[in-house]
Deep mutational scan, measured.
Amino acid sequence: PDDEWKERLREAEEKNNWKLFEELARKAGVSEEKIEEWKRRWS
């Protein structure tokens, strides 16, 4: 299951679909801290 969400995150990233990325990350149990960090790195 871990690989599956990583794959989906990669797809979201490729499409630059931040909303989807964020949603998937939350569902995968990624901390808000980590998500914010990704946001900063991404923008």
Rank of each mutant, 00 (worst) to 15 (best):
W42Y: 08
F21E: 00
L9T: 04
P1M: 13
P1A: 10
K34M: 15
W18K: 01
E4T: 11
G29K: 01
E11K: 08
E14Q: 12
K27S: 11
A25R: 00
W18P: 01
A25F: 05
R8P: 05
R26G: 01
W38Q: 03
K39Y: 10
R26E: 01
P1T: 12
R10W: 08
E36D: 10
R8N: 06
E36P: 00
N16Y: 10
S43T: 11
L24Y: 07
E32I: 05
D3T: 09
R10Q: 09
E4F: 14
E13N: 10
E7R: 10
A25S: 02
K15P: 03
S31W: 01
L24N: 03
K27R: 11
W5Y: 05
K27A: 15
G29T: 00
K6L: 14
E7V: 10
S31E: 03
K6A: 13
K19R: 09
K34F: 11
W38D: 02
E23S: 05
K6N: 09
L9G: 03
W38M: 13
R26V: 02
D3M: 10
R40S: 12
S43F: 15
E36S: 06
E14M: 14
A12I: 07
F21A: 02
W18R: 01
R41P: 01
K39F: 09
L20H: 12
E11S: 08
R8Q: 10
W42K: 02
R8S: 07
L24M: 09
P1L: 15
L20Y: 09
E14C: 15
A25P: 00
E14V: 12
D3V: 07
E22S: 04
W42S: 02
E4D: 12
W38P: 00
R26I: 05
R41I: 14
L9N: 03
I35W: 02
W18F: 04
K34L: 14
E36L: 09
N17M: 09
W5T: 06
K6V: 13
K39P: 00
E36M: 08
R26Y: 02
D3L: 11
W38E: 07
E37A: 03
E14T: 09
A25K: 00
E23T: 06
K34R: 10
W5E: 04
N17S: 08
N17D: 14
E33W: 04
E32T: 04
E22Y: 08
W5C: 13
L24S: 03
W42T: 02
R8D: 04
E4L: 12
W42R: 02
S31D: 05
W42F: 12
A25L: 15
K39Q: 03
K15S: 12
E11N: 07
R10P: 03
E36Y: 04
S43M: 15
D3I: 09
V30S: 01
A25N: 00
K19F: 10
E11M: 10
E37T: 01
S31M: 02
V30M: 15
R41D: 13
I35P: 00
K6P: 07
L9A: 09
V30W: 15
